[in-house]
């Protein structure tokens, strides 16, 4: 009489269980990897070139100086300069811009510097306090399409808030500063 193993000791049970764990782990790793990938942009916009040409950040993202969002430029704003730029006619990427202008549509950009919906960030006080754009957004002279910067989480926010004047700490560490 063969003695049966308890079910949890049978090899094929263990193999299956191991496979399930692997699949789950793989899924999690893959998912986390995917969240960190850069989304596809409609136009491969070269930030480095525009910043290098001396255009200030606030020219295209003016909202940063007065309000919560920096904003993305309207198609007409791009076109304002580009209709006078010779390269607009030749570059294949810029032909996409021409197409949007002809269709009279906004360009469906995908913002990469984003926060979850339970975080309410406001650019204005940061710009007013003299925080430079590159402090948070990286050096745009070095990137073409905007890249997300990982780990821009609450600890990262607070690490900077903690360096401010001590009398401001109550305010700058208040939950309702960002969460409501």
């Amino acid at each position: 009489m063969k003695k049966t193993l308890p079910w949890w000791l049978r090899p094929w049970v263990r193999v299956t269980a191991g496979l399930i764990v692997l699949i789950l782990l793989g899924g999690a790793v893959g998912g986390i990897y995917l969240t960190q990938t850069v989304p596809q942009q409609p136009i491969q916009f070269p930030h480095n070139f525009h910043v290098g040409a001396g255009i200030p950040c606030l020219y295209c993202h003016p909202g940063a100086q007065w309000g919560p969002v920096a904003g993305l430029p309207s198609t007409q704003k791009c076109w304002g300069c580009h209709q006078q730029v010779a390269k607009t006619k030749t570059s294949p990427e810029l032909q996409k811009l021409v197409a949007y202008v002809e269709k009279g549509e906004g360009i469906p950009w995908v913002p990469v510097f984003i926060q979850p919906e339970f975080v309410h960030f406001n650019h204005r006080p940061h710009v007013a306090a003299g925080v430079a754009c590159e402090t948070c957004h990286g050096d745009m002279k070095k990137v073409t399409v905007a890249q997300p910067i990982p780990r821009q989480n609450m600890g990262w926010c607070l690490s900077c808030h903690a360096k401010q004047a001590p009398e401001k700490w109550t305010r700058l560490s208040d939950c309702s500063l960002c969460h409501y």
């Binding site: 995917l34 969240t35 990938t37 850069v38 989304p39 596809q40 904003g71 993305l72 430029p73 309207s74 198609t75 007409q76 949007y100 009279g104 549509e105 906004g106 360009i107 469906p108 950009w109 995908v110 913002p111 990469v112 984003i114």
Partner: peptide, 12 residues
Amino acid sequence: PAARYVTRRPYY
């Protein structure tokens, strides 16, 4: 990326 990022269509 589709879940994390949202497309914004700014003004024309």
